[in-house]
């Protein structure tokens, strides 16, 4: 009788465990449908903003700390020109960090960019730190609903045994700001 009770107890515990598990699975399936994202294009992309992810066209890794992302050597985004940009132009502003750990290995890094196929003046960064790469963008390049911005660094950290990623810069935000 005692043995039977123990078996019943053990069986009940297992049954309860799998019932809990099954309940959780049912709950999950209710969440399965993807969330509907707004179709509007952003002029400013904050790296931790889920709405911005679709506009990070190439060369970005997963967000970290819900605030920044490592880039590859080449990376590109698509931005909506801000209101009035087609008449007055805009300013491209890229907020990023050149980490000390990277700078100590690579030395000065040159960042170049092009927007809608036009090269913008590059800039060389000779110390680690937080920077804003700012360039004026003429109105003639901002007549479309969305424009592509390509970035490229002249150096990057190659993959290592512990991190298989090619690492360019630590991006915080990229924006086209109204003049």
């Amino acid at each position: 009788m005692r043995r039977l009770t123990r078996r019943a107890l053990a069986g009940s515990l297992l049954l309860a465990a799998f019932t809990v598990s099954a309940c959780k699975r049912r709950h999950r399936r209710a969440e399965a449908q993807p969330e509907q994202a707004p179709g509007t294009m952003l002029s400013e992309l904050q790296m931790g903003d889920a709405r911005a992810a679709v506009q990070l066209a190439k060369g970005f890794y997963d967000p970290e700390g819900n605030a920044w992302r490592w880039t590859q050597k080449h990376f590109s985004v698509v931005l909506a020109p801000p209101p009035g940009a087609a008449q007055r132009g805009a300013t491209l502003a890229f907020h990023f960090t050149l980490p000390e750990a990277e700078f100590s290995k690579l030395g000065p890094i040159t960042l170049s960019a092009s927007i809608a196929g036009q090269d913008l003046p590059p800039q060389t960064y000779s110390a680690a730190g937080d920077y804003v790469f700012k360039r004026n963008v003429p109105a003639t390049l901002l007549s479309a609903q969305a424009v592509n911005v390509d970035f490229q660094t002249d150096k990057s950290l190659p993959p290592t045994g512990t991190d298989q990623r090619e690492l360019g810069l630590v991006a915080t935000s990229i924006a086209l700001q109204a003049e």
Binding site: P34, E35, Q36, A37, P38, G39, T40, M41, A50, A53, V54, Q55, A57, K58, D62, P63, N66, S76, V78, S114, A116, G117, Q118, D119, A144, Q145, A146, V147, N148, D150
Partner: peptide
């Protein structure tokens, strides 16, 4: 994005068009 799944067809269509329009 961070484990979330977003349906982004409309926005991505514009992104791809901009990407392809941008010949650089």
């Amino acid at each position: 994005v961070s484990g979330r799944l977003l349906e982004t067809t409309a926005a991505y269509r514009r992104v791809l068009e901009a990407e392809m329009d941008n010949l650089s």
